[in-house]
Amino acid sequence: MSAPESILKAENLVKKYREFTLDHVSLNIPKGYIIGLIGPNGAGKSTTIKILMNIVKPNSGDVKIFGLDYKKHEKEIKNRIGYVGEVQYFYENKSVTWTGKFVSQYYKKWDENRFTALLNDFQISRTKKVRELSKGMRVKLAMAIALSHDAELIILDEPTSGLDPVVRREVLDILMDVTRDENKSVIISSHITEDITRIADYITFMINGKIHLTIEKDDLLSNWKKIHFKKGALNQEISQTLSNVKEGMFGSSGITDNYLKIKDKLSAAIEKEDIKVENVGLDDILISFVKGE
């Protein structure tokens, strides 16, 4: 079977700031997939996304979206992208209707009916001025714009950051609904691991300006496990296959990134009742990466 068509390809992106460097970041987003970009604050997620949107220019590296580059095809690329930024900027003293009309002039495939339907679904009053909208409403307005022009790639930079749990869930549900269309790809950055777990197909971990790991979510869930051992049960051989090993009063624990491979070794070496295996949350993995840096 041939590999899925790549919709976005970023190679060796470098961006140097005084106190931070995005260090040779490469990304490849296949058509129809949701990629979650996860990392602690200051990991370089937003910088990467801004480079992908051509809001920030990299010092070096190359970005190709739909096989096109920004130098010659900025308008064509952005016509096919829906973007929701970390902070939503609009004309503050203009109404929601005015904002919709303003942006509609720039999108070739703008669907006014879809925009109206989304505003109704999101319960955003069209007559309200943008400055009167709450943070959650602004995110929803940005989402409505991003989803009203038949975008093939949706780029979301911390869209749920600062939202209350109810609105956060609503935003994620909308996103999951959209991505049922297999032609749409999504890249979403977040430091809220729960959001990424909920929707992503692939997960990319970023730490200190570098990509640490890109993995399919199902692979991650089946291979990454936290294993608890009763006191004295953990031997040297198994210990070497684990990371983040901790010794406690009642036993020890560690994380494996290859559970399927060591499963047999574990059952041969250790009594079943001496170990407990549990799924690892993305938080645990992220923390183990951060500590290992």
């Binding site: 051509n54 952005k78 930024g85 609009f90």
Partner: peptide, 16 residues
């Protein structure tokens, strides 16, 4: 109000 940032998210280039 960072309107230039808003422009940059739209299908517009610096020339426009």
């Amino acid at each position: 109000n960072n309107v230039y940032h808003f422009f940059k998210t739209l299908p517009l280039n610096a020339g426009d």
